[in-house]
Design a protein around this nucleic acid. Structure first.
Lengths: 218, 218
DNA sequence: ACCTGAACACCGTTCAAGT
DNA sequence: ACCTGAACACCGTTCAAGT
């Protein structure tokens, strides 16, 4: 019971490494994931990780995949399935902001492909004609991943401790400060920012895209 | 003519630094922008840059702003103006892929706000009722920035030298390799991937969102 | 086969010392 | 005031040496 177990008795594995990475990302953000911090957390040396994971990029992709496993398994009427998938992603990003960066940026291929596939199947089910299906699925895909990126940017921009309300409060006062001659729309919209719910707005936008997709087919 | 000029006679300035950063980003990609490489390019030391720019993040934001200055100044019929703005951004990202990462991620606030404002004004001009204007502008904004992020991800994923056709070729064969039982939609769509134009698809998606927006108002 | 941790080749940023 | 470049406090990754 010596050679195969580590100091604390638990052998290293890709699974354990990825789980620790998720925990570290959740706890200390994207900047907190370091091979040194991670290996300390696993009570080993930084080099040990490379026996199970090829690089930091791969680790980030695996962490994203671990949190998002099964997120694209949605059921029911196609429109509702698209909403469910979108909300599942939105909530996952809300809980783990670093996922937003991954989805919007590096695109951990396999996760991203599964999302695209799930969206495409619903687009087909909605009766969108063949040649337009690709465009429709892409539109949904890009909209959802755009929100993901923007949410991640917001999370990164504001202090870790601030609640959403505080964050929106900050933004509202910021927008109200703008010159109305230069930013008439932003100033007008600033008033709505207080009672504004990111999640509802995400759904509203998703419905807008769905409406556009089905309006074409009709 | 000694104390205020540098070795090669050209004094350092924020403008010159940002211009050099853009050149470096275009030439050697996001990883190529280093304070050491940048200062060497300006024939000075890394520390000198900090007299004109506060941090690397600020430098990236400034570089994005420099390339995108005036991109939101669009004219004409609102629908056409939205298309023009979208295409201007798409083409800018095509020429400078690193901009996509900036827009989708860190969101260099001022650029991003100008885009949002421009979109909001066209949404108003389209006759969308007041309470829906925010959602509509956000939908356009998130779709456009989603494409930006995805394009940047693609650019990063593929070799620098490959043409777009080659890139798509690689993706097509990759998609064709997928298990049709697990990825029926992706496999079906793989055939269309060869004659597929990212730019056209971007416009098609933008029209989808616009259709959704105006369908609501009617 | 797997682990260890020192070492390598970098980073962004700071800061004393110069002009 | 601005510049210089060595130095600080880190990175991801590699690799000889161990078990």
């Amino acid at each position: 019971m010596a050679s195969r177990t580590r100091a604390d008795g638990s052998p290293l594995s890709r699974e354990r490494i990825v789980a620790a990475a998720v925990e570290l990302l959740d706890t200390s953000g994207e900047a907190g994931l370091t091979f040194r911090a991670l290996s300390a957390h696993l009570s080993t040396g930084p080099g040990a990780i490379y026996h199970h994971v090829a690089s930091k990029d791969e680790l980030l992709a695996a962490a994203t995949g671990a949190v998002l496993s099964g997120v694209s398994d949605v059921r029911g009427e196609p429109r509702e399935a698209v909403r469910a998938l979108g909300l599942a992603l939105f909530d996952a990003i809300d809980a783990h902001p670093w996922i937003g960066t991954q989805l919007a940026g590096l695109a951990s291929q396999s996760v991203t492909l599964r999302i695209f596939e799930a969206l495409g199947q619903r687009v087909q089910a909605l009766g969108v004609p063949g040649p337009s299906q690709f465009d429709a699925a892409s539109a949904l895909f890009n909209y959802i991943l755009g929100v993901a990126g923007q949410n991640a940017a917001n999370a990164r921009a504001h202090t870790r401790g601030a609640t959403r309300a505080e964050v929106l409060g900050i933004e509202a006062t910021h927008w109200e400060t703008l010159d109305p001659a230069e930013y008439p729309f932003a100033v007008t919209v600033a008033a709505q920012l207080r009672e504004h719910d990111d999640r509802e707005q995400f759904l509203a936008g998703l419905d807008l895209v769905l409406t556009g997709i089905t309006a074409r087919g009709a």
